[in-house]
Design a protein around this nucleic acid. Structure first.
Length: 808
RNA sequence: GCGGAUAUGGCGAAACCGGCAGACGCGCAGGACUUAGAAUCCUGUGGGAAACCAUGUGAGUUCAAAUCUCACUAUCCGCACCA
């Protein structure tokens, strides 16, 4: 088959006939979604193919199963790479992005996927980012967007803010200077308001367990207790702990260097040391933080606070092993049962007092296990769990704390000091403060004439015609927000926009999203486990609470494709020099063969090192399919009704294949699905050599093979289907369903074991009782010779599999 | 350090709920067709002469373990002082 001509032909037909989602259809909907991609300068790489090819086959499979399949595509078009490219080459991000999108569109079409191009989205276009801004405003109204100071990566040499990925290892990627932290007032989304629901909602999702666990850990719920110590001036100092049972072992208290009371609590004689330490901690960069073996450092403030139950004075230290952003930014230090406190106490000569009785042979501190409480006044003798409750209750009674839940997850910082993103739609007015831009003035257009080369300022801040505006509230002179939104904001709702991509009155119509969503299967890389997938869930829940949609979770089922590595087993990258381009293979073998090979050669969710050894064999397989199918149709069908052993065998192979392929396709187990098709083809080939044939059966079996393979090799199957006289598209044919009767055989092969060792394999008629099987097995010569006159003590029969005789 | 995953022939990989390990394919070997090669087709293919031995290593449970339990090793991924 001339695959080039075939691909072109069918792609044109599909485009003309609009084979995508049909709004008027009353078939059940199926929303199949692949993560949209970034329009990179290079062509489609193997990763794109590996994501989009097999998942398109899955979508086509669903279509043939009678679903009205919606499979949209688009581009996550804002972001840093286009901006960097612009800085390097001077080409405006808008034009490079548009050009890249065009290339990718062409290539995606050439792949032969049934994307619904009518719903295409490009997040950098005004008709999209207008609604991204609208989302921001709704979150702001709802109190879910707020401003606060937060550190950014700042390169003192380039005088610019760096994204985390540009500051990897604490070094500026441009000039190699050490990056410092600098505080800026930035926008946050209050994702933490949804921490609990984001956690509990995971239970009902058909997602990889690993991904759910990662989100769970990311959210990091911990149940503990807040404890209020008293400062010398009588003011409270609160800490969070998960071990209130060790409260009597506290020997000092530690604040994060950034804690608001750090300076206030410093006595005069400690002032210089504390200032120096705070400065030291602020300079601590990522490299330091990467080493978990980092030695603990800290400084005494000179102040004390009092234990809530004993009244004992406790020295207050500052140390950067305490995080300002978690809990209250202060901890009670209990060196005996805590490794960190123990290390710190040892270094600074602070007392270490045991409150948990050690058990067994373990006699070294720190002893972090739970156990019986000692040296704890009235609580002695309780075990840790009892003591936790008792002590928390006691604190609550005294109004000095009590049970408390904390989450590790932080609010989402969405401000970016970048050009190529959606402008944040607020105005800063000297009189009115922060004023949201009214909906009717959206979009706040991203200006095109902007100096985005780094020179110390946010790119937009240098664009006076953008920055200068009037306050929507008082009409006076005001300035726009110079930052743009994190691109993750754009991708947090694109799957909703697809459902109503051309709506110019709203981001989407409520009925439209309620009809199409949630997404039935979402396919994409595992690297998004904690960012994109969490943000999208947050948006969905927030929009639900504002009444814009009626479901709780955006993605019912999630599948991660594996990663195709370079032939050397490393991640493909230019620096490794191991990048394999799909283009040559597609050129030589065709897009169907290439897709089929990706599906057959790897376990889909595992991926693995690239290896093209088998790609020829896939081409050969397709040729054999073609040859065999056409030979079945080369002679006129007969009505002999011949149905002997050969026919039964073929019918069995056919129905077995159908049944297994359906299961495997559903499970994204494409490699085994194709293996089953190969087996079926082998059976067909074998039948083709039979002297007398039931050509009617032969034909229907051959047709079933085309239908089975159609989702995986769409152009090829369309062409074959047409050649055998099929009318219309093969994708309008129902996917084959097995006939269970053909799968019932008269007899089954059993493994016959004596003392769990296999003696032979024997066929037994189906329907025999266990006792009959035992008797038949015992009557076999090979068994007799093994058993001899020994007593049969036990006989295990596993129906359809084996019989095991225990003798002795 | 914590959490998770993975480990099966020369290679990519299969194996339902504990029930015949290695499906399917590559590669390899032999054969057929060819003047010859390519292509194609057929046969064989975990190791071992065999008894038997084999699913990273070592124990255990069981009539039966790739699968369950415990300990360990290696690789990969995520988190990384979260009190």
């Amino acid at each position: 088959m001339d695959f080039k001509a075939t691909e072109k032909k069918w792609q044109a037909i599909w485009e003309k006939n609009k084979t995508g989602y049909d709004k008027k259809s009353n078939k059940p909907k199926f929303y199949a979604l692949e993560m949209f991609s970034y329009p990179s300068g290079a062509k489609l790489h193997i990763g794109h193919w590996y994501n989009y090819g097999p998942s398109d086959s899955y979508a086509r499979f669903k279509r043939m199963q009678g679903y009205n399949v919606f499979q949209p595509i688009g581009f996550d078009a804002f972001g840093l790479p286009a901006e960097n490219f612009a800085i390097k080459t001077g080409v405006h991000p808008k034009s490079s992005t548009r050009r890249n999108i065009e290339t990718m569109e062409k290539q995606l079409k050439a792949m032969g996927a049934m994307f619904d191009w009518s719903a295409e989205i490009k997040t950098c276009e005004e008709d999209y980012y207008k609604w991204t801004q609208w989302m921001f405003l709704r979150l702001y109204e709802k109190g879910l967007a707020y401003r606060k100071e937060a550190p950014v990566n700042w390169c003192p040499s380039c005088q610019t803010v760096l994204a985390n990925e540009q500051a990897a290892g604490g070094i500026c990627e441009r000039c190699g200077t050490q990056v410092v932290k600098k505080n800026l007032t930035q926008w946050f989304f209050k994702i933490t308001d949804y921490a609990e629901e984001l956690l509990t909602g995971l239970d009902g999702l058909d997602w990889p367990e690993k991904t759910k666990l990662m989100q769970k850990n990311w959210i990091g719920k911990s149940m503990g207790c807040e404890v209020e110590f008293t400062l010398e001036n009588g003011e409270p100092l609160r800490v969070f702990t998960t071990r209130p049972d060790t409260l009597f072992g506290v020997t000092y208290v530690v604040l994060a260097p950034e804690h608001s009371l750090a300076r206030a609590l410093t006595t005069e004689e400690n002032y210089a040391a504390v200032e120096e330490y705070i400065d030291y901690a602020s300079r601590a960069n990522e490299i330091d933080r990467l080493s978990s073996a980092r030695e603990k450092t800290g400084v005494f403030t000179g102040s004390y606070c009092y234990h809530p139950l004993t009244g004992r004075p406790l020295p207050i230290y500052l140390a950067d092993y305490v995080l300002a952003s978690y809990g209250t930014g202060a901890v009670m230090a209990v060196p005996a049962p805590d490794e960190r406190d123990y290390a710190f106490a040892t270094k600074y000569g602070l007392p270490i007092e045991q409150v948990i009785e050690m058990q067994g042979s373990d006699t070294t501190l720190p002893y972090t296990e739970k156990g019986h409480i000692v040296n704890s006044m009235g609580f002695d003798g309780l075990d840790s769990e009892e003591a936790k409750i008792a002590i928390a209750t006691e604190l609550a009674k005294l109004g000095r704390g009590g049970k408390k839940i904390n989450y590790r997850m932080r609010d989402w910082l969405v401000s970016r000091q970048r050009y190529w993103g959606a402008p944040i739609p607020v105005v800063h007015c000297p009189h009115c403060g922060v004023v949201p831009v009214p909906d009717k003035e959206l979009p706040v257009k991203l200006p095109e004439e902007v100096e985005f080369r780094p020179d110390g300022k946010s790119p937009l801040e240098k664009c006076e015609e953008f920055m200068n505006t009037l306050c929507p509230k008082c009409g006076g002179k005001a300035r726009r927000d110079p930052d743009t939104l994190d691109t993750f904001v754009c991708s947090s709702w694109y799957f909703l926009r697809y459902a109503d991509a051309h709506n110019d009155k709203a981001p989407f119509d409520k009925a439209a999203v309620n009809k199409l969503l949630p997404v039935d299967v979402y396919v994409g890389g595992a690297e998004h486990a904690c960012m994109h997938l969490l943000f999208a869930r947050f948006f969905t829940k927030a929009l639900r609470d504002m009444g814009y949609l009626d479901f709780d979770e955006p993605f019912k089922r999630l599948v991660h494709q594996g990663v195709i590595l370079g032939p050397d087993g490393n991640r493909m990258s230019k620096s490794h020099g191991n990048v394999v381009s799909p283009d040559d293979y597609v050129e030589t073998y065709g897009s169907d063969a290439f897709r089929l090979y990706l599906m057959f050669g790897f376990s889909y969710t595992e991926g693995g090192p690239w290896n093209d050894d088998g790609i020829k064999s896939i081409a050969k397989f397709m040729e054999r399919v073609e040859k065999t199918v056409l030979s079945a149709y080369a002679v006129a069908p007969d009505q002999t009704g011949l149905y002997g052993d050969n026919e039964r065998a073929l019918d069995y192979a056919r129905n077995f294949a159908i049944s297994r392929v359906r299961k495997d396709m559903e499970a994204f187990s494409f490699n085994t699905a194709i293996a089953r098709m190969m087996e079926f083809l082998n059976a067909l080939t074998k039948y083709s050599t039979a002297e007398k044939k039931n050509t009617t059966l032969y034909r229907t079996a051959a047709k079933d093979l085309i239908l089975l393979i159609a989702p995986c090799a769409p152009h090829f199957a369309e062409e074959l289907f047409e050649k055998i006289g099929g009318k219309g598209s093969v994708f309008d044919q129902p996917y084959p369903e097995e006939n269970p009767e053909a799968l019932v055989l008269d007899e089954t092969e059993y493994a016959v074991q004596v003392n769990s060792k296999i003696v032979l394999r024997a066929k037994f008629k189906n329907g025999m009782t266990d006792e009959e099987i035992k008797e038949r097995a015992l009557s076999l010569d090979e068994v007799k010779s093994r058993v001899g006159d020994k007593e049969v003590k036990k006989c295990i029969v596993v129906k359809g599999r084996l019989v095991n005789l225990i003798v002795g």
